[in-house]
Design a binder for these strands. Structure first.
Lengths: 332, 332
DNA sequence: CTGTTAGCGCTTTCAG
DNA sequence: CTGAAAGCGCTAACAG
């Protein structure tokens, strides 16, 4: 004899089964999103009973047996950059549109992040989207219950699937733009060189600069931030050069602000400035920075492909490349 | 006789108990964060065994009985504004620092958000921080398993705890600044007026403007975005006025870009421009917008207070006010 | 197709 | 203080 259910509790599948006059198993099958053997009339009765009761499955309980939580982890160093704004809003929106929820993990400067993850629901996510470069693929994979780890940070070692912008194309176009404008000397303002993405990016700039016979007069290291660009532009290390290539728009903005006089309309431009990311802000008057970007929509579509059909990626460290473009603005 | 545990599985509390030579109940108690009766030596043996095995509790299973998941929902309309960048990174970081994880719920234009929530782990969060104004407190409270709902959107009906910036102070200072500079006519550029925060904000501006004997020549409605500020500034509805008060910095930036000539150093300023939010970007040369802000650190500290000791708030729709300030920049 | 019966891993009565 | 046992709500295995 089943105890009457307390009115302040959510109905459970047992309540639904009872009302429909079937066993819990049948109710479970009828309510499953997967095709399961149930006779048409019982399925109907169950659905009707569930509706009548306002039954909603307890995802926590379901997860305990199915090992799936409909949860995706988005792992980032931080959300700080203008370019993040352009990306994450759309990403979250799209993930939610396929019925999954998003757990944000900010690795930041955190130590013991593995312990942090392991002691929370995040450990059980269905998939992890790793934008942070805090660890390599093998390590990251150990930090989650399953292997659905997508590397979006350039660290595509050991056969982990990855999606990265094909930066060479855009960089080549940017440097070609400079070369076509008689640039002979250039400076490179970089981000954290520990990052493999950044290393590749720097490599591309250097080879393209060399290829066009441009002299690299200095390489200054920042950290992608506006502040660091600004600091470098005002530092003694700053050199004269025909062109300045920054590996982030934010740094280029800092450089621009320090040398703002040099870019006013009524003066001859002292140097040509190139950024990277193509942030929305660069579309407006204040920071008309020539930049390199990629189509966020395409990028995110690929990510969603991974989420919905991971097997397609699973066959051994597939690398998907998203095309980049160069957009010329008045800063160059 | 217990089956040997498979080496590829995580050890369970049963494994720990077995190794320590105690019952599962004892192991559970010894491992609990709450004080539970266990003899010192057994506790020690359990802890030692857990450590040896690298045991980590399965939060999913634990949650099934404890009804707590160590998860906080952050509910937003979207992450789109510059001011979001200044807030959410710190917020996530702080929430994580108390051992909780963050699930981001983007309400956006989504219909059926209730169903979306109910069908995911988000329903089970320990607390919800509601920045979005998609629903009133009573409705929101029904969307989560518990009552720990903190309204950060100004909708503080029905006794729900809320934290809001005390905007009047900052607004009064801004309008006083204008009055002190002989401003006689003003325009108001607003956001979505459906929002109660926005309504209150508009009300404050109007009463302060009136109080200083300034004439309000027009009230233009935007949607907080740069784009809308820009569109309004270029529209036929735009009027001449000594001052323009915008209820977001982003809109003020749009206004500034359209009238950029009017703010160049070598010309007399045509009007004084005031924003709202005090985004970081306004600290730099490109958008030197006088603005109203509040201390994010204080704000977030209050939020964490709610998370760690909700009972302090629980006693009936407590409203915590965070002070705002006015910062004058060259735009005014 | 259907129902019974075990669990998932953990906490918590409830008797000792 | 301790352990056996009963669940949390759901799904899966296994006989019918």
């Amino acid at each position: 004899m089943m105890a009457p259910r307390k009115s302040d509790d959510q109905p459970t599948i047992a309540d639904v089964a009872e009302l429909a006059g079937v066993s819990r198993a049948i109710a479970s099958r009828a309510l499953s999103s997967e095709p399961r053997p149930v006779s048409a009339d019982k399925r109907e009765r169950v659905l009707q009973a569930a509706h009548q009761l306002g039954y909603k499955p307890n995802l926590l309980a379901r997860s305990l047996t199915t090992k799936t939580v409909n949860l995706v982890a988005v792992v980032v160093n931080h959300i700080h950059d203008l370019s993040d704004l352009d990306l994450f809003d759309l990403l979250i929106s799209e993930i939610q549109s396929i019925g999954k929820q998003v757990i944000f993990v900010r690795v930041g400067s955190a130590e013991r992040i593995e312990e942090f993850l392991r002691n929370g629901i995040a450990y059980h996510v269905d998939a992890a989207l790793v934008f942070s470069d805090f660890a390599d693929a093998a390590t990251v994979r150990k930090m989650f219950r399953n292997d659905r780890v997508l590397m979006l940070n350039g660290m595509r070692d050991e056969g982990a699937p990855a999606i990265i912008p094909d930066e060479l194309t855009g960089i080549a176009a940017a440097v070609a733009d400079a070369a076509g404008k008689d640039v002979r000397t250039a400076m490179l303002v970089t981000g954290r060189s520990a990052s493999p993405v950044e290393q590749a990016r720097i490599g591309h700039y250097k080879s393209e600069i060399r290829r066009h016979g441009i002299e690299l007069v200095a390489e200054l290291r920042g950290d992608y931030s506006y502040q660091s660009g600004r600091a470098l532009a005002a530092s003694p290390a700053w050199q004269k050069a025909d062109a300045v290539f920054c590996t982030s728009d934010a740094m280029a903005m800092g450089v621009l602000d320090v040398h703002r006089d040099a870019f006013s309309e009524n003066r001859a431009r002292e140097f040509r400035l190139y950024g990277f990311d193509d942030v929305t802000l660069a579309e407006y008057e204040a920071y008309p920075i020539s930049s390199i970007g990629y189509d966020k929509t395409v990028y995110i579509k690929e990510i969603l492909g991974f989420l919905t059909a991971p097997d397609r990626f699973q066959s051994g460290g597939i690398l998907v490349q998203v095309p980049t473009y160069f957009v010329a603005r008045s800063s160059s």
